[in-house]
Amino acid sequence: MIIGVPKEIKPNEYRVAATPAGVQTLTSRGHIVLVEKDAGIGSNMQNEEYEKAGAKIVSKDELFSQSEMIYKVKEFFPEEYKYLRENLIVFTYIHSNAHPEETDAFLNSKVIGISYEDIEEGKGNFPLLSPMSEFAGKGGFLAACHFSQKVHGGKGILLARIPGVQTPQITIIGAGAAGMGAAELAASFGNKVVILDIDLEKLKKAKEVLPSNIELLYSDQTNLLNALTNSDVIINCILWPKWRKDHLIDRKMLKLMKTNSLIVDVSCDDNGAIETCHSTSHDNPVYSEEGIMHYCVDNIPSAFSQAASVSLCNHSLPFTLEIADKGYETALKENPVLRKGLCFYTGSLTLKETALKQNRPYKTPEEVLGI
């Protein structure tokens, strides 16, 4: 199969889907890999390294015209829609539920769209979302350290335990990969850390691996309101269903928080779990609502691009190999985990979440594949 690795065009997106090591694995299996010139520069991976691994360095136009599968990181942007064509395989973070115009482009072009974020192995286990979620959670805490400084607009506190100074409280909503990553760093700095989750099994697992200065609480209204009142930083790490119109934290509840405290929304669901959150960028990462600073950068892992690219390639490459070795139809039919990630199939929408949010008809992956 001819696999294309393009350069990302999202502002401040420096990751790349395939590392030179990943390319070497693909080419050793007989596949042809096209890498757009300078695709890996943002992750400190040079064109020469890709060529040594067996890739051919090409222009963007060459890559999209020749490739049978596009292997990338971020969703497609309007200027890339022209490259979509029937039966082209697109394997990336698609985020179709958040981008109706992208959904239109994928449906109209009749591509095969498989999204990293929807591949699910067992209930709640997302093997291609979890590694980047850990980066996002840890990066979110580091951002909180930065924006809690007075020189960066915060109230001038150090998120660490200092003798003679009140220890800050960090509340983390969600005990998944992002929440665990944030908690690990926040606790290691000596903060008072609270994790809220409605899944008691996740809280039990968190107890086994996290230090004892982390309080693990069931996420009910009483505990949430107490956390809002007492916290210096709230880090949201839960995925809010896209079709819900209510919020875990609404605008009125922000009045309970300490003035100029900080919300870090790792999930970046616009008008989602936190009503006042909307996506921001690394260029303009923070804003204030109701006297509360908000940090809602939607691609936190890009700040750690080299490490994040290595991790993402490590986790996505087995699925890429399966698609390339078997062809998309056989791979999707034989692997129910991969099949969960099928969003688009030759003009049909196959992701229920996007269908519900955008009020579109859809078919199940099993229907379109005839299984």
Rank of each mutant, 00 (worst) to 15 (best):
N223I: 07
K202Y: 09
T229P: 00
G42A: 07
E290S: 13
S288P: 01
N226K: 14
V165A: 07
I70Y: 01
A227V: 06
G40M: 03
I162D: 08
L142A: 12
E86A: 13
F77E: 13
A227Y: 01
P127H: 10
R161G: 02
T276A: 14
G122A: 12
H294D: 01
D220T: 08
L248F: 09
Y50E: 00
F64W: 14
R339M: 08
P131F: 06
T19D: 01
L158S: 04
F344Y: 11
A303D: 07
S302C: 03
G154I: 00
C277A: 15
K326L: 14
Y14M: 02
M1I: 12
I89V: 15
C343T: 13
L332C: 04
S219Q: 14
S115C: 12
G370S: 05
D118Y: 13
I170D: 03
A144Q: 02
S309C: 05
V23A: 01
A21C: 07
F319K: 02
L210Y: 09
P20G: 05
D283A: 14
I238D: 03
I371A: 10
E36M: 10
E62F: 09
I41L: 15
A160K: 13
E134N: 11
E8C: 10
N314F: 09
L239D: 12
S281R: 07
I300G: 00
M180T: 15
E329D: 11
N271Y: 12
P336W: 09
P163T: 09
I300F: 00
L63Q: 03
L34N: 03
P318S: 07
E13Y: 03
E322V: 08
P318G: 06
A160W: 07
E49W: 00
W243T: 12
G40T: 03
L142W: 08
I57C: 06
Q24C: 08
D246F: 11
P163L: 08
D104H: 10
Q46R: 14
L224A: 04
E208G: 11
F147G: 03
K138F: 09
S267E: 05
